[in-house]
């Protein structure tokens, strides 16, 4: 298995280098730069030209790319023009928020999705299955930003069960028990909004996979052997049906970092999704490229992880 992993890792390296070049060139191709947004008559043109020179925006793209890459290799993504602070520090600030949000919502997605999928697949075409399938169709049809708004309105404003914005109650001492509790409290509603909508794919995959596996020959064999129904489902069917979900899991971790733009905006949650949109609007290149690169790398690593997980769950892949 380690051979397989190493081989996959070797392929990954050129992928990431290519990705970095593409990301950089694409970012430079956006019209305007960080300074074109400064449409402010108190700023003289000389001052803007000076700032542009200082930021190295006048250099040809390959020089800018070289300088940038040299920094990136050392873990330095440059300075954010808008925030006036190192990009690494800025992303770090946000990534923690997004990480917790995504972690909780990912756990919720599986906590909701797996049981529903199993029940739905096991009792397919019964009432319970139809209810669950109905829910998944609804979930597919509902955009997450509308669901988030409605959830916020009902549970946040009308019932007042959850805070309506931010990641923590203002003024609490970081590290205290109350602080952590407040963080969790702030996380619940947004992550539930993400999870209730995001889980429907998992439910559907699992359901159809279980229905499919149920009719396989080896299941009939297992039943013929006299294996109890519980064992048939838990060992034979579930393990085989989980494959596509496992394959998907690698990609889920991308979301751990990328965040959800809509949810973050609705809940005024300072995370990566917000940061990304903001920096595109303002042409804050150093942030944009760092974020795209980061999620690109994660996508590649996610695929890698998926392959590895698959090779663990499904020995057939390893043989190839």
């Amino acid at each position: 298995m380690w051979k397989f992993t190493v081989r996959r890792l070797l392929i990954t390296t050129p992928q990431i280098i290519l990705l970095s070049a593409i990301v950089f060139i694409l970012a430079k191709m956006m019209p305007g730069d960080a300074l074109t947004g400064l449409i402010d008559p108190t700023l003289s043109q000389e001052r803007i030209a000076e700032m542009r020179e200082k930021l190295g925006l006048n250099n040809p793209w390959y020089i800018q790319y070289r300088d940038w890459l040299a920094g990136v290799v050392q873990g330095d993504f440059g300075q954010s023009f808008k925030y006036q602070m190192p990009v690494t520090e800025l992303i770090w600030q946000r990534v923690i928020n997004t990480f917790w949000l995504s972690l909780v919502s990912t756990i919720m997605i599986y906590a909701i999705g797996l049981p529903l999928g199993i029940v739905s697949g096991r009792y397919n075409d019964r009432l319970i299955d139809q209810l669950i399938t109905g829910y998944t169709y609804l979930g597919f049809a509902t955009p997450v930003f509308i669901f988030g708004l409605v959830a916020l309105w009902i549970f946040g404003f009308m019932l007042g069960w959850f805070p309506t914005g931010g990641s923590v109650e203002p003024g609490l001492e970081p590290g205290t028990f109350e602080y952590i509790l407040s963080k969790l409290h702030h996380l619940l509603l947004p992550s539930l909004s993400i999870a209730l909508i995001g889980t429907v794919g998992t439910v559907q995959y699992l359901r159809s996979e279980i229905i499919d596996t149920k009719q396989r020959d080896f299941i009939i064999t297992a039943r013929a052997k006299g294996a109890p129904e519980r064992r048939v489902y838990n060992r034979h069917i579930f393990r085989n049906s989980i494959l596509p979900i496992a394959a998907f899991f690698g990609y889920e971790i991308i979301n751990l970092i990328n965040g959800s733009i809509f949810i973050e905006q609705i809940f005024s949650y300072p995370g990566m999704g917000n940061l990304f949109i903001e920096s595109i609007m303002l042409r804050d290149y150093s942030v944009v490229t760092a974020l795209v690169l980061l999620s690109g790398i994660l996508a590649i690593l996610g695929a890698l992880l998926s392959d590895i997980i698959l090779s663990v769950v499904d020995p057939r892949i390893r043989i190839k």
């Binding site: 708004l149 404003f157 914005g165 203002p170 905006q265 005024s268």
Partner: peptide
């Protein structure tokens, strides 16, 4: 005084509830 960032899509509700 507590200052908090509030999304333009929820500001009306936040005012109404006194938040």
């Amino acid at each position: 005084v507590t200052l908090k960032v509030i999304s333009s899509s929820t500001v009306a509700n936040a005012l109404e509830t006194g938040e």
